[in-house]
């Protein structure tokens, strides 16, 4: 037994050595090709915990970056994306690799990346890093922080004013981070919209189980909810279940999901990442590499309330007016949407 183990050990080490030696010469070939910088190109990298097509957090950022790339010119901006890096270890490798390759701005688009960032940033003082949701900044780190409760509040009002059954259903992933802020906003908005309407929260316990979210939505609807909402990647499963039900509507967050169910998505809270990205690019140009805590809010237009044009006539004018008033009040600071205090 021992002999066999030893021989295998040897075999593996040989293999390692072989691949090491064999690789060295080939590895040098790509090295001298760091495209001679003719045009001053801005290089942006994005690291995502989920996928680029999750119809939520990740995709909204990808579309924001693409929009920036479009307006600034494809030849001026390069965008590289690494997805499915839910584990902070792998994300750390990716971020460090991008930094080593000389990317100018690296978006670590997940709240779980804060710790790995603090370790990397010291070695790359000239690189700008940005991550969110978070608040801790460093001289070369921006933190961004969507005030999800603000749009949630408006959507909650809309839900209360539109619900015929008097029950608004929320499908939460887990009770943490942006989901809590959003749900809390919805709940307060529902109360403000119509006091007698109830909101019910149920959690699937998973960020990405779309089948589970769909089933939770079915349970919510069978128990009376007719306006539903929810956040994170799993939410799209709930949306699909709503889309199969007559007279049930969905409110989406992070991005506009009406494309997948045009007859059922009433409105959306949309994060305008394009503005945030542009802001970071401009700050960097002006010499500010980081150090700012950037909030996304209704006030500066980085959070928008977007109605689905196709269903616009379903929403009574007085409801719309009431919501617009609340929006103005939030923007002016007259109305403050509270966050949970533990």
């Amino acid at each position: 037994m021992k002999k066999r183990v030893f021989s295998l050990l040897l075999a593996v080490l040989t293999l390692l050595a072989l691949s090491g030696c064999g690789a060295k010469p080939t590895a040098q070939t790509p090295a001298p090709a760091p495209e001679a910088p003719k045009v001053e190109k801005l290089r942006i990298a994005l690291v995502l915990p989920a996928t680029v097509d999750d119809l939520a957090w990740g995709q909204s950022m990808v579309e924001g970056l693409k929009a920036v790339q479009k307006t600034m010119g494809e030849d001026k901006v390069e965008v590289a994306i690494s997805e499915k890096l839910g584990g902070a270890v792998d994300a750390g490798s990716a971020i460090r690799q991008y930094a080593t390759q000389g990317y100018d701005i690296i978006f670590a688009h997940g709240s779980q990346y804060q710790s790995v960032l603090t370790e990397i940033i010291k070695d790359f003082p000239k690189t700008t890093f940005a991550y969110g949701t978070g608040f801790t900044t460093h001289p070369n780190v921006f933190a961004y922080d969507p005030q999800a409760q603000e749009g949630g509040y408006l959507l909650g009002m809309l839900a209360a004013l539109m619900s015929k059954s008097g029950i608004v259903g929320i499908i939460g992933p887990m009770e943490s981070g942006d989901a809590v802020k959003y749900n809390y906003g919805i709940q307060q908005g529902v109360i403000a919209g119509k006091a007698e309407v109830k909101s019910r929260i149920a959690y699937t316990g998973s960020f990405n189980d779309i089948v589970g979210a769909g089933n939770m939505a079915k349970t919510q609807m069978s128990a009376g909810a007719d306006i539903l909402t929810g956040s994170s990647q799993q939410a799209v499963g709930a949306l699909r279940a709503v889309a199969e039900t007559k007279n049930a509507y969905w409110l989406s967050t992070d991005m506009d999901q009406s494309g997948i169910a045009p007859d059922h998505v009433l409105a959306a809270q949309v994060y305008n990442w394009e503005k945030i990205v542009k802001k970071i690019i401009e700050l960097r140009k002006a010499g500010t590499l980081g150090g700012q805590h950037l909030t996304l809010s209704l006030a500066d237009g980085t959070i928008e309330l977007k109605y689905n044009a196709k269903l616009a006539d379903k929403i009574p004018a007085e409801a719309k007016a009431k919501i617009e008033q609340a929006k103005k009040d939030i923007i002016s600071g007259k109305l403050k949407v509270e966050l949970p205090k533990k």
């Binding site: 989920a50 996928t51 999750d54 499915k84 998973s206 990405n208 189980d209 779309i210 089948v211 589970g212 769909g214 089933n215 990647q233 799209v236 499963g237 699909r240 199969e244 997948i260």
Partner: peptide, 18 residues
């Protein structure tokens, strides 16, 4: 069954440990 009998869509990691 998960994609065409329940969710009626596909997304990454749809089986989620089932």
């Amino acid at each position: 069954f998960l994609t065409i009998g329940q969710a009626n869509m596909y997304a990454d990691n749809i089986t989620a440990g089932r």
